[in-house]
Structures are given as structure tokens and as C-alpha cells.
Amino acid sequence: MRSDIDHTVQFKAWLEEHRGILVKVERAYAATAADQADLQQELKLQLWISLRNYSGQAKASTWIYRVCLNTAMTWRRGTARREARIEVGADLDRTGDEAASPAQQADDREMLEQLYAAIHALPEADRALILLALDGLAYREIAEITGLKENHVGVALSRARQRLAAQMKGVIDELE
């Protein structure tokens, strides 16, 4: 039996190590800063509850991705979110990469804003696939998280990439 203390220690260690996953899912599924904070709380709550169910068969990151994506999709359905102005930029300001030059930071920030805006415009399934692919997960891991067959991941991802490219073009045209 795992005690409450073990549970809490493991949960904190996971958050320390995999916080990036939560942040990327928040940015991809919630448009405004308030919604991102709301989704963050929901992601942490579901992870905390579900952690008791983690058997160790899957990699921790794979399992966290699965819980986070399922939670984000349910959260969106349950709360009729509006795709308001994307506020990823404000978040990026607070967490800027100090090692990069200011010009590089500005370029990266602009491109990231465009990328997140395009991701927000994608259908839910594509959004999850793109998120996982951008994070460099293998097809096997993507299949494990999404429930797709491994040999279908490539086809689905290729379509999702095409839609993302079209969305990026639309976003850039809109900005220009």
C-alpha cells in the first residue's frame, strides 16, 4: 500500500520533472491566461487523483501526456470555452529564455505565437497529434497515448501536419 506521503512525494517529483508537458497542454488547449490557470488546476487535480492508478508499465511522461490530453479535451467540452485572443504571448514574456539574444527571443516569441494560434485552430484530434509530434515522441508512444494503431499514426500525423501548415499560412496572412 502506498501511503499519502509517498503519493505526495511522487506527485511533486513528477511535476518538477514534467511540468513542461502541463504547460504545453495548457497553452495548446486554453486561449486566455485565466483559462490556462483554470486548466492548470484541473490538470494537476486529475494527475494527483490518477497517480494512484499508475502501474509503471508506461513511461511516466507518456502516462502524464495521456492524462493531460484527456483532461484538457474534457475540460474544453465541459466549459464551452471561447477561442478568444490567444494570450500565449503574455505567458512567454514572464518566462523568457535569458540565454538567447533579444532578436532571437523576439523571433521565437513571434513564431511561437503563430504556432499556438494555428494549433488552437486545429480539430481536437489533430491538436493532440501535433503537440506530441512537436515534442518528438515516437510513433509507438503517440499510439499509446492517443489509442491509434501505430501504423495509422503516420498517416494521421501527415494529415495533421498539412492542416497545421494551412493554418500557419492563414495565421501569417492574417497578421500581415
Binding site: 506527485f11 511533486k12 517529483a13 511535476l15 518538477e16 511540468r19 513542461g20 504547460v23 504545453k24 494537476k44 512567454l92 514572464r94 518566462t95 523568457g96 529564455d97 538567447a100 521565437d108 511561437l112
Partner: peptide, 10 residues
């Protein structure tokens, strides 16, 4: 390269 916040905040 996207900046991510550090720490658990749990």
C-alpha cells in the same frame, strides 16, 4: 526552444 516555467508549484 520555448521557455517553460521551472519548479513544481504543487
Amino acid at each position: 526552444r520555448q521557455p517553460l516555467p521551472k519548479g513544481a508549484e504543487a
